[in-house]
Amino acid sequence: MRKVNFEKIKPGDLVEVPRTQFAPNRRGWNGWLFSNAVVISKGLGAKTGRPCITVTMQTPGRERNNYNEVKRTFFAEHVFYTNSLETAKRFMQEDGVTNKEEFEKFAAREDVTGCDWIRFLVDKGFLF
């Protein structure tokens, strides 16, 4: 995982942020789940003076193949570049999905699960 460059990151960029620690005994980031996020703003923390980035991040929703959004602020050192856009494009190409309408039909199928992160990318305008 590569940390974002605070000087080059701008609002609207797609990044990856830590969401949940599932194994506290592990070291480093090996025990965390990450979520896609879109940068809203960046600045310096009022108390610490450290670089901070505010994002809208995707969290799992209650419905199948859907998500919730949460606005959070992270220290810049805890925000990472992501390759989920390329992965999503590859998955959609393998399944023959080429536009938003086809994706909605695909995600509504009974045998399809785990599309919440792809739906986030579609809704934010990164795919299709």
Rank of each mutant, 00 (worst) to 15 (best):
R2T: 14
V4C: 06
V4S: 04
N5A: 12
N5T: 11
F6P: 01
E7F: 07
E7A: 13
K8C: 07
I9Y: 04
I9L: 07
I9T: 03
G12H: 01
G12A: 02
D13W: 06
D13M: 14
V17F: 09
R19Y: 12
T20N: 11
T20L: 10
Q21H: 12
A23W: 00
A23G: 01
P24R: 06
P24W: 05
N25C: 09
N25M: 12
N25W: 12
R26F: 11
R26T: 12
R26W: 13
R26L: 14
G28Y: 09
G28V: 11
W29Q: 09
N30Q: 12
N30Y: 14
L33M: 15
L33N: 15
F34T: 13
N36M: 11
N36C: 10
A37Q: 04
V38P: 09
V39R: 02
V39F: 02
I40F: 01
S41Y: 05
S41I: 03
G43H: 02
G45M: 03
A46F: 04
A46V: 03
A46P: 04
A46N: 05
K47N: 06
K47T: 05
K47R: 11
K47V: 09
K47A: 10
K47L: 08
K47E: 08
T48I: 04
G49P: 01
G49I: 01
P51F: 00
I53C: 01
T54F: 00
T54W: 00
T56I: 15
M57R: 15
M57P: 05
T59K: 13
G61R: 00
E63P: 00
E63T: 00
R64S: 01
R64K: 03
R64Q: 02
N66M: 00
Y67D: 00
Y67V: 02
N68D: 08
E69Q: 13
V70Q: 15
V70S: 10
V70L: 08
V70C: 10
K71I: 09
K71S: 03
K71G: 01
R72E: 15
R72K: 15
R72W: 09
R72A: 11
F74V: 06
F75E: 07
F75K: 06
A76F: 04
E77R: 14
H78V: 02
V79P: 04
V79A: 05
V79Y: 07
Y81P: 05
Y81G: 06
T82M: 04
N83W: 08
S84P: 01
S84E: 06
L85E: 13
R90C: 12
R90H: 15
F91I: 10
M92S: 10
M92P: 10
Q93W: 08
N99L: 11
K100E: 15
